[in-house]
Design a protein around this nucleic acid. Structure first.
Length: 205
DNA sequence: GGATATGGGAATTTTG
DNA sequence: GCAAAATTCCCATATC
């Protein structure tokens, strides 16, 4: 566990920088309402809410456990609208895309996580309930919308398509960040990636 | 058999 | 200029 934490520390720093900038740009809207905390010793992670206590989620660490994230997190957040709005309405330039994260490149899995946490994007991509935590699925009808937004976010010259985006997602399988699930349009964040992404919400945010 | 999704090789572009 | 990551193109295969 200790080695693992050391290995992921640098990644975490990069991601935290990204999120700091992200929330800064979004005025930290509603950020105070939901907070993801991780107890590294006990591997216990909780969503906390300012308005009212929320049930403790099963840790994402438990890879084969019940789908705490998919059901509880997304449903709850969708219900409350507690997470910041996605950048989908923005038309970022390449400069802006580069600026996010203080010079660090925006990465696709970060973007997808934002989409997943945005209730407004639920018709495009959503967590898959009743599965292992971190599993998400694209809408067959709106998957191209997600891809297009990703292309806009990156400021690509040519429009991004789902086919191209999925190619990038397959590359993540090599680095172990996202895996393909043997289901149509369905992918899964790796345990480590999911933990890092959720750690965004645990710090000062 | 057609439409769609998936998978991968390889070249190109972008970024740090 | 270089290396790594991401994008792009293209084709083959699998699935419904």
């Amino acid at each position: 566990m200790g080695n693992y934490l050391q290995d992921t520390q640098s990644d975490l720093e990069v991601i935290l920088e990204f999120l700091e900038e992200y929330y800064r740009q979004n005025n930290g809207e509603n950020v105070d309402k939901v907070c993801w905390t991780a107890d590294e010793e006990s591997c216990e992670q909780r969503w906390t809410c300012q308005d009212s206590p929320i049930t403790t989620l099963q840790p994402v660490l438990a890879h084969d456990t019940s789908p705490a994230l998919g059901q509880s997190t997304t449903a709850l957040l969708s219900e409350r609208g507690s997470l910041p709005k996605s950048l989908s309405t923005q038309q970022p330039t390449k400069h802006q895309a580069k600026a996010v994260g203080r010079g660090k490149k925006v990465r696709l899995f970060h973007f997808l996580f934002e989409m997943l946490e945005d209730p407004k994007m639920a018709d495009c991509v959503s967590w898959v309930p009743a599965t292992t935590a971190g599993v998400f699925r694209f809408s067959s009808t709106n998957k191209e919308k997600v891809a297009a937004l990703w292309g806009q976010r990156k400021g690509n010259k040519r429009p991004m398509t789902y086919q191209k985006m999925s190619r990038a997602l397959r590359n993540y399988a090599h680095s172990g960040e996202i895996f393909k699930v043997k289901k149509k349009l369905t992918y899964q964040f790796s345990r480590d990636t999911l933990m890092l992404l959720h750690s965004y919400h645990g710090g000062e945010l």
